[in-house]
Amino acid sequence: MSQQQTAGPRSASLYRMVMPSHICPYGLKSKDLLERAGYTVEDHHLKSREETNAFKREHQVETTPQTFINGSRIGGHDDLRRFLGKPVADPNATSYRPVIVLFALTAFTAVAASYAAYGTPFVVRTVEWFISFSMVALALLKLQDVEQFSTMFLNYDLLGRRWVPYSYIYPYAEALAGLLMIAGALIWLSVPVALFIGTVGAASVYKAVYIDRRELKCACVGGSSNVPLGFVSLTENLMMVAMALWMLVSRALLSAA
């Protein structure tokens, strides 16, 4: 049943948990959805666990909030979204949103840093900062749950499979190389670290995806992501290799000059 098929006045009854120690966020979202859809909401608060459990028993439902329109039960928050013709996210669906957001924000951060440092948003250093900021941000996501990251990483990394501790070292090495490249310090350390982990990573991803044709999730944005292994992870590793080689060449040219 869709919103357009529903006859009668545009009013709805919403039953949601509102307690001193807990206000249901999905109840707030449901109320907002209804109001933005033009419904007048009769907002019924379930003020205790006992009252909530009694409501669920009475209506034979397992969760709250619950929405009723013209006497018919629509259901919970996801059911209400479907009723109003809005999409419902699939938690298991693959998505590139995390990496798109990450790279967009690190690019804007690099532009902002360049403007602050040089008075112009676009200089060579902007690209260097974009890559190094991205390395630090990606490492941060991995280090939120390094155990989960290492488990996913071991599905495809060639070195990690031979020496498991490398799966724990990798995000710290990525963060270290990124931070040193941002500062332009200790090039003798950051360049070989980025070159090594980037080369091994690129070879591992290429073998798993393009040779073995395996369908895996990418550990690049942490162990809980639904980003498919392939282009994104390969790009991450190739960016590190490119950054390492660029810094090596550019510093050599400066020294020669």
Rank of each mutant, 00 (worst) to 15 (best):
F103R: 07
V164F: 06
L138V: 08
G222N: 09
P228K: 05
F83Y: 12
S13L: 11
S233I: 07
R49G: 00
L216R: 03
M19W: 02
L28C: 07
L140E: 12
T126N: 12
S132C: 15
E236A: 13
L195R: 01
R162T: 13
L141V: 12
L154A: 10
G27H: 04
E147Q: 14
Y15P: 00
G76Y: 10
A54P: 01
Y166W: 11
L159Q: 09
W246T: 09
V124C: 07
L138W: 11
L186W: 08
E51Q: 03
H44Y: 02
A117H: 04
G85Q: 04
A107V: 07
M1A: 15
D32Q: 15
K142E: 08
A89G: 05
N70C: 12
S2C: 13
L143G: 02
G230S: 02
R125M: 05
V127I: 15
E236D: 15
L234I: 07
S204C: 10
A244K: 03
S11D: 13
D145K: 06
A203K: 02
R82P: 07
V200C: 04
S233D: 09
S225Y: 01
L189G: 07
A112I: 14
L176F: 02
Q148P: 00
S190K: 06
R162Q: 15
V164W: 03
V136M: 04
A219V: 05
A202L: 14
A139N: 00
R213F: 14
E35M: 10
L195V: 06
A7F: 05
M152N: 13
A117C: 04
M152A: 11
G198K: 07
L229T: 02
V209I: 07
P9C: 01
G76S: 03
G119I: 01
M239L: 14
A113H: 14
T64H: 01
A116C: 10
N53E: 08
R36P: 05
A183S: 05
H59Q: 02
V127H: 00
Y26P: 00
V124W: 09
S21R: 06
H22N: 13
K29V: 04
Q60A: 14
C218M: 11
V111N: 03
V249P: 10
V88A: 03
S48K: 00
V221T: 05
Q148A: 15
I69F: 11
Q3G: 00
A93D: 04
G178F: 03
V205Q: 01
E174N: 01
M1D: 09
V232D: 01
T126G: 06
L189Y: 06
T120F: 08
H44M: 03
G184E: 06
E35L: 07
V146N: 12
V146T: 13
V193C: 01
G75F: 01
A256S: 13
Y118C: 09
A175I: 09
G223I: 12
A137N: 06
L28D: 13
K56A: 04
R81S: 13
A37Q: 07
P20E: 04
T40H: 10
V99K: 08
Y210R: 03
T52K: 00
L216G: 00
M152I: 04
I187F: 05
G85T: 01
F103Q: 08
A252N: 00
D78G: 05
L180Q: 11
G222A: 09
V146L: 04
A175P: 01
R213V: 11
T106H: 00
H44G: 01
Y39M: 06
L253E: 15
A112K: 09
P9T: 12
P25I: 09
Y210M: 08
Y115P: 02
